[in-house]
Computed example of a mutant assay.
Amino acid sequence: MTPDLRYPALSDLKAACKGRVPWFVWEYLDSATGTESVKPRNRAALEQVLFRPAVLRGPIVPQLGTRFLGQDYAMPVGVAPVGMSGLIWPGAEAALARMAQTTRLPYCLSTVATRLPEEIGPIAGDMGWFQLYPPKDPSIRADILARARKAGFRVLVLTVDLPGPSRRERQLRAQLAIPPKLTPSMLWQIAQRPAWALGTLRHGQPRLRLMEDYLKLDGNAPSTAHPGYLLRAAPDWDYLHAVRKLWDGPLVIKGVMDAQDAPRLRDAGADAIWVSNHGGRQFDGAPAALHALREMRAILGADMPLIYDGGIESGLDVLRALAFGADFTMLGRGWHYALGALGAQGADHLAQILRDDLASNMMQMGLTHAKDAYSQLWTHGPAPES
């Protein structure tokens, strides 16, 4: 049976993933913080965005390609950074980077990945973005950025929405430490998931290799106090200015939810703003990211590039975000559900799902270009500027 028949939607891949990774891994991937109210809030906001179906438009040939930050991409969708990606599925970073290069989508490597930028940069090639959790030490910051640039990463994503650790109660209950400190319960969970276990044996214990170059831990730190957290600063505007001076390529600021910050970020040298509530993993009191996106576009006008993530599960969701002002969208958990379900093949399959669903819904809406989705909005209220 082909993947499209067995796993026609991301929800199918998610269900399969849960049955193929150890429970403590699932808790790491799927959890948020607090009561986890942000995850359904993101979904509810997307599902409230409705469009007018089009009729008598003649043949529609959707053009999915888009140009963003000086680079051509196959569609306005990319791979968001996920920490400890290789814990979720062995070899995840390389598999996603390879898919991104082949499919022509951006892949963003996390500072707290399980593989080094020197390993992943050449695989991602011109599709490579690098995400920076800001280190306190200026020399470490400069060294990480120099390594990312030398490895071929073209776009830098500075994450600014983690002033301190969140509790992530589900991860605490799962007793997850970084790097993982195996307990008898975890060993039993691993024994029930042979594909994950054998893959981990081949790839080695998942570790935060980049951060370990600068700080050694004894393996007893909880998942919310790994080397990335211990090295990281709570950045301010001076920190942003320092990063801007060090990085000569496109600079994206990730984790912005307050539209009042947007003009100052633009003036400080941001080339794009990434609207995100971190998938609910940091602050359970945040609004839906889609609502913040609309406010951001209204304040900034048409010219400032905006990226959106938060609850996207389909091509239709991509169109919803574009209609509310995004220029580009990202998924994080989704790609890892796909890897957990089907291994490296899962990433390629999810890319195909998103591509097909995007094209199908564009035809229903009479759209040749996805950026024109706002023209078919049914939702009451003024459409964002285009």
Rank of each mutant, 00 (worst) to 15 (best):
M1P: 02
T2C: 08
R6S: 11
A9R: 13
S11G: 11
K14W: 12
K18N: 01
R20T: 04
Y28R: 07
D30V: 01
G34S: 06
G34L: 10
T35P: 15
E36Y: 01
R41P: 07
V49Q: 10
F51R: 08
R52S: 09
A54W: 10
L56F: 05
G58L: 07
L64H: 06
T66N: 09
L69H: 01
G70S: 02
D72I: 00
M75N: 01
M75Q: 06
G78H: 03
P81F: 06
G83Y: 13
S85Y: 06
G86Q: 01
E93Q: 01
A97F: 00
R98Y: 07
T103A: 00
R104V: 00
L105H: 00
T114P: 06
G121I: 02
A124Y: 14
D126C: 03
M127D: 02
G128R: 11
G128D: 11
W129G: 15
K136W: 07
P138G: 09
I140R: 04
R141Q: 03
A148C: 11
A151L: 12
A151K: 10
A151M: 13
G152N: 13
G152Q: 14
F153P: 13
F153M: 15
V155C: 11
L158G: 10
T159H: 05
V160A: 12
V160W: 04
G164W: 02
G164Q: 11
R168F: 00
R168A: 12
Q171G: 00
Q175A: 13
W188Q: 10
Q192E: 14
Q192G: 12
G199A: 00
L201A: 14
H203E: 08
G204M: 04
R209G: 09
L210A: 15
L217S: 09
S223N: 02
P227T: 15
L230M: 08
L231I: 10
R232L: 02
A234L: 06
W237I: 07
A242E: 06
I253R: 05
A259C: 05
R266M: 07
D267G: 09
I273L: 09
V275G: 05
V275N: 01
G279C: 10
R297M: 15
A298Y: 06
A298G: 05
L300C: 06
I307P: 08
G310L: 06
G311E: 07
I312M: 08
E313H: 13
G315I: 01
L316Q: 02
A321Y: 01
L331Q: 02
Y337T: 07
L339A: 03
L339V: 15
G343D: 01
Q345K: 03
Q352I: 00
I353N: 13
D357I: 11
S360R: 14
M362L: 08
M363N: 06
M363K: 10
Q364I: 08
M365H: 13
L367P: 14
H369C: 14
K371P: 00
Y374P: 14
Q376N: 11
W378Q: 13
E385Q: 02
E385S: 04
E385T: 07
S386L: 12
